[in-house]
Design a protein around this nucleic acid. Structure first.
Lengths: 353, 353
DNA sequence: CAATAAATGGCAACCGGTTGACAAATGGGG
DNA sequence: CCCCATTTGTCAACCGGTTGCCATTTATTG
C-alpha cells in the first residue's frame, strides 16, 4: 500500500512545478529558459560555452537573462565542476607593509581576470599557515603563498592538491616568484664601497626565512667582490621594534654601514641610532630592503634595495591563473629584478667630529 | 577471476553505485554513512545539528569522519542553505594604510569565529564599488563596506539583500561603526589654541567622503568654540601626493596650523613644506587623522587624531556576525573613541626668524 | 534531389549536503 | 500488558547549474 500521495496535480501545469519562481529568490536558468522558450541546458551552454549555440538562440537567451537580471549562482556552478573563480592568498602578517603591494598586485590581477581574491593571514606561524591553507584549499581554485613559513614538503603536498604559487621563496617543483636580489645588492654594496665604507653589517630576519638567507648570501658575496668586510647580526623580529633592539649590536660591531633584512628593521634601527645622537648618514649609513610604503617618510629618507612587490603579487596571480587555464605546467621560477633606490640614509662617511 | 566488467553486481552492493568512491575525490557523507552503517542524512544531522542524533550514533559518525579525514564540501552546503561562512570586505584602496588595520581587525575576528574573509577593492570609485559589492553579495553571508563611496540608497539596497555593516560612515537604517571624531578633534584644536595659533586650515578629502565632511564639521565647531579662525581647503586626492599638491594653497592661506583629512595628506604636505625650507612645527603645525602605520616615521613624527581602526574592523565584523547569528536587528551605530596623539609635528609657533 | 556530415537543442543524470515528513524504536504511565 | 508520547533514523525531494549522449534540424555535396 505505498500510494505516495501524489504531490503534483497531473493536468494543471505542463511542466512540473519544480522550478516555479515565487518571485522571492534570484532568477535561475530555468526562468531564463522559460522566457526564451528553450531548454535550461541550452541556457547553461549559451552562458558558459561560447559558440556552442546558434547566434540567434544566444541573443534570445542573453536578452532574457538581461531582462530578468540574472546572475549565476556560484555554488551551483562550483558543485559539479569544482571551479570557483576564486583563489587564496596567504600572507604572514597583514599589517606588514611588505604585503600591501603584494596583496594589491594580486587583487588587481584577480579582478582583471574575473577572479575573486580570498585573503588569509598566518600570523607568522607555520601551523596557522597550514591550517589556513587547508581551509582555503576547499573553496578556491588555487593558492598563493607569500613568504611561507611552512616547510617545503608541506607546500609540495598542498601543490599536489591544487595549483600553488609561492612568492619570496623557492620550492623545488612549485612555481615561484622571487626577486633576484643580486643586482640590487650589488648596486648597494658598490655604492657603500664608493663612499669609503670598509666594514658593513647585515641584520638578518627570521631564521626560517628563505629570503633572509638569500639576502645575507648576496651581501656577503658582494662584499667579498668589493673587498669589504661583512658581519651578520641577528634580529629578534623583522619589525620596527626589532630594528630598535638591534641598535646596540650594530654600535658594538663597529661597522659604518648596515644593510637590514627589511625596511622595518632599517627604520627602527635608524630611529634608535638617531635617538642616541648618531647622525645618519654622516656617521653610519643604513640600507633597507623592499622599499615598502613609508620608506621615504623618514628623515633622511631610507636608501633601500627595492623589490617590485606589486609585480610579485600580480606575477604570482598571473602564473596561477595561467596554470588554471591549462597553460601546461610551467612550474618554473619567475625572477623579478631588484634595484637600489638611493635616498638619504646612506652616503659618505664624515670624519668623526 | 573477479569479472572486472559488470560495474555493479546486483547482489553484492545493496545500495546503487551512485555514490561509489573511486578513491580519487574527497570523502563525502555517503562514505561516512557507509562506514558508520547509517543513513547519509543521519550523518548530515550528526555533523551540523548537535543533539539531533543519539550520543552513540554521534560518536560512530564522528569516528568514521575522522578516519576518512572528512571535510564538508562548502558548495554542496551553500547550495541548498545559502550559508557560506564567508563575508566580504570592500575597501576604497588596498594600499591606503588606513585600511590595513581595518582589514586585520576584520580578518582576525572572522577567523576567530570560523568565517573566511573575502577582500575587494573599489579603487575609490563608486561604480567599481557597487560592482564589487554585487559580485561579492552572491558568495558571502554579509558585507562590510569601509568608507564606501556609493550613495546611501545603493547601500540600503544592498542591505536589503543581506546583512551589511558600514565603517566610517553613517547610513540611516544600516548598522555602522563610526569613530566619534569630536573628542579627538577637540583635543587637537585646544592644543593648537594653547600653542598660540589663531588661524587653522582643514584640508578636506574626497567630496563624496562622509567622514571628511564630519571631520570638517568637527574642526569648524571646535575652532569656533576655541575662537580660532578655520578655513577649508580642497585636495585632489587623499594621498601623499595630494598632500604635496595642496601645499601651495596652504601657504597662500596664511594659516599657522593645518589639520588634514588623513595622515597621508599630512605627510605629503609636510614633505613639500619642508622641501620649501619651512620648519615644522616652528613655522607651521600639522595634524593628521587616523594614526596610520608610518605616521611616526616622519621627522618630526606626525601629530594625529587617532581612530582605532583595528577596533573598527573587528567591531564591524562582530556586528555582522551577530546579525548573521540571529541576534535580532540592532542596526544601531557603534561609536568608537578618537584621541589626539601628540607628536612632534605640532607645537608652539616660533616668532618668524 | 538524395545522402551525409555538421550544428544545434533536449533529456536526464549528476555534484554533495540539507531538511520536511514520516516510520520505527524506545520509554513511561495507567 | 497495552496505548500514547518521544526520540531517533530513513526516505526522497530539493538547491541550480553542468555535461554526456542522443535526436533533430540545417548545411554541404555528389
Amino acid at each position: 500500500m505505498t500510494e505516495p500521495k501524489k504531490p503534483d496535480a497531473p493536468a494543471a501545469t505542463g511542466r512540473a512545478n519544480k522550478h516555479a519562481r515565487d518571485g522571492k529568490s534570484n532568477p535561475t536558468i530555468y526562468d531564463i529558459a522559460k522566457v526564451a522558450g528553450v531548454n535550461p541546458s541550452t541556457v547553461s551552454r549559451a552562458l558558459s560555452k561560447p559558440g556552442r549555440v546558434s547566434a540567434k538562440t544566444q541573443k534570445l537567451i542573453e536578452d532574457a537573462a538581461a531582462e530578468l537580471n540574472y546572475q549565476v549562482n556560484p555554488f551551483a556552478r562550483a558543485l559539479p565542476t569544482g571551479r570557483t573563480n576564486t583563489f587564496g592568498l596567504i600572507v604572514a602578517d597583514i599589517t606588514n607593509p611588505t604585503f600591501f603591494d603584494i596583496i594589491r598586485g594580486a587583487e588587481t590581477t584577480a579582478t582583471l581576470r574575473d577572479y575573486t581574491l580570498v585573503l588569509a593571514e598566518s600570523a607568522e606561524s607555520a601551523v596557522t599557515e597550514l591550517t589556513a591553507a587547508r581551509r582555503l584549499m576547499a573553496t578556491v581554485d588555487g593558492l598563493i603563498l607569500a613568504s611561507p613559513r611552512t616547510d617545503d614538503d608541506n607546500i609540495r603536498a598542498l601543490a599536489r592538491d591544487k595549483p600553488v604559487v609561492v612568492i619570496n621563496r623557492e620550492v623545488e617543483g612549485v612555481p615561484c616568484v622571487v626577486p633576484d636580489v643580486n643586482k640590487g645588492i650589488g648596486e648597494a654594496v658598490r655604492s657603500l664601497a664608493a663612499n669609503g665604507h670598509t666594514k658593513v653589517a647585515f641584520v638578518a630576519g627570521p631564521p626560517q626565512s628563505w629570503m633572509s638567507a638569500r639576502r645575507w648570501e648576496g651581501v656577503r658575496a658582494a662584499c667579498e667582490w668589493s673587498r669589504l668586510e661583512a658581519v651578520r647580526l641577528d634580529s629578534t623580529k623583522p619589525t620596527v621594534d626589532g630594528g630598535r633592539q638591534v641598535a646596540r649590536d650594530v654600535r658594538a660591531s663597529g661597522v659604518t654601514a648596515v644593510l637590514t633584512y627589511n625596511d622595518l628593521l632599517a627604520i627602527g634601527l635608524m630611529q634608535e641610532l638617531q635617538a642616541a645622537g648618531i647622525v645618519v648618514p654622516d656617521q653610519i649609513s643604513i640600507v633597507g630592503f623592499d622599499d615598502i610604503f613609508g620608506a621615504d617618510f623618514t628623515t633622511p629618507p631610507l636608501t633601500t634595495v627595492r623589490s617590485p612587490l606589486g609585480e610579485c603579487g600580480s606575477g604570482a596571480a598571473t602564473l596561477l591563473l595561467d596554470l588554471l587555464h591549462g597553460m601546461g605546467e610551467p612550474a618554473g621560477t619567475l625572477r623579478v629584478e631588484t634595484e637600489l633606490v638611493l635616498r638619504g640614509s646612506s652616503g659618505r662617511l664624515l670624519p668623526a667630529g
